[in-house]
Amino acid sequence: MSYNSEDVEQILEIALTDKEEGEFSREQLVEMASELGISANILEKTEQKWLAQQEKELLRGTFNNLRRRDFRKHFISFIAVNLFLILLNLITSPSYFWSIFPILGWGLGLFFHWWNVYHTKTEDK
């Protein structure tokens, strides 16, 4: 019986997930690669590419966490200041609701900040 490369990849993936030990040493990785006919040079290049990708994902996750934290600060400021403006409005001139204008203006900026944080993906740069 013969297998194509996709079948081999799927079988090995299942075997690796079923293996009770969750970690492999570098020597085991090199041994598995040599058994599959993968040269040490190709393995080294692929490993470096994988490490770079892992680093990018870590940095992207950290960056996204910072963006979310900044948005939460912006939202809390929006609520606090606008509650104060509404209270000031009700005390000084209850017949005219002027505080709606800063609420709408700042709210529009807050909406775009929210959209930028939660609906845009960070691109590889």
Score class of each variant (00 low, 15 high):
residue 1 M to P: 08
residue 2 S to T: 15
residue 2 S to G: 09
residue 4 N to H: 07
residue 5 S to Y: 10
residue 5 S to K: 11
residue 6 E to K: 11
residue 10 Q to R: 14
residue 12 L to R: 06
residue 13 E to F: 14
residue 13 E to P: 07
residue 13 E to R: 14
residue 14 I to T: 14
residue 14 I to D: 13
residue 16 L to N: 07
residue 17 T to P: 03
residue 18 D to W: 13
residue 19 K to R: 15
residue 20 E to F: 08
residue 20 E to M: 07
residue 21 E to L: 12
residue 21 E to I: 09
residue 22 G to S: 11
residue 22 G to M: 11
residue 25 S to Q: 02
residue 26 R to Q: 09
residue 27 E to Q: 12
residue 29 L to C: 12
residue 29 L to I: 12
residue 31 E to H: 10
residue 31 E to C: 03
residue 32 M to S: 04
residue 32 M to R: 02
residue 33 A to H: 01
residue 34 S to K: 15
residue 35 E to A: 10
residue 36 L to Y: 02
residue 36 L to T: 03
residue 37 G to P: 00
residue 37 G to V: 02
residue 37 G to E: 04
residue 38 I to P: 01
residue 40 A to D: 11
residue 43 L to Y: 01
residue 44 E to C: 04
residue 49 K to F: 12
residue 50 W to Y: 11
residue 51 L to I: 15
residue 51 L to P: 01
residue 54 Q to L: 08
residue 55 E to F: 00
residue 56 K to R: 15
residue 57 E to I: 00
residue 59 L to T: 09
residue 60 R to D: 07
residue 61 G to I: 03
residue 64 N to I: 11
residue 64 N to E: 14
residue 65 N to Y: 07
residue 65 N to D: 10
residue 65 N to T: 11
residue 67 R to G: 03
residue 67 R to D: 03
residue 68 R to A: 04
residue 69 R to N: 10
residue 71 F to N: 03
residue 71 F to P: 05
residue 73 K to T: 12
residue 74 H to G: 02
residue 74 H to K: 12
residue 74 H to F: 13
residue 76 I to C: 05
residue 76 I to N: 06
residue 77 S to G: 15
residue 77 S to E: 09
residue 78 F to S: 00
residue 80 A to H: 04
residue 81 V to M: 05
residue 82 N to P: 05
residue 83 L to E: 06
residue 84 F to P: 06
residue 84 F to W: 04
residue 88 L to A: 14
residue 90 L to Y: 10
residue 92 T to G: 05
residue 92 T to C: 11
residue 94 P to Y: 00
residue 96 Y to V: 13
residue 96 Y to C: 07
residue 96 Y to P: 04
residue 97 F to I: 14
residue 97 F to R: 14
residue 97 F to Y: 10
residue 99 S to V: 03
residue 100 I to V: 13
residue 101 F to H: 04
residue 101 F to N: 02
residue 103 I to S: 07
residue 104 L to F: 04
residue 105 G to K: 02
residue 105 G to I: 13
residue 108 L to I: 11
residue 110 L to R: 03
residue 110 L to D: 00
residue 113 H to C: 05
residue 113 H to P: 04
residue 113 H to S: 06
residue 114 W to R: 01
residue 114 W to P: 11
residue 115 W to G: 02
residue 115 W to I: 03
residue 116 N to R: 07
residue 116 N to F: 05
residue 116 N to Y: 06
residue 123 E to L: 15
residue 124 D to K: 12
residue 124 D to W: 05
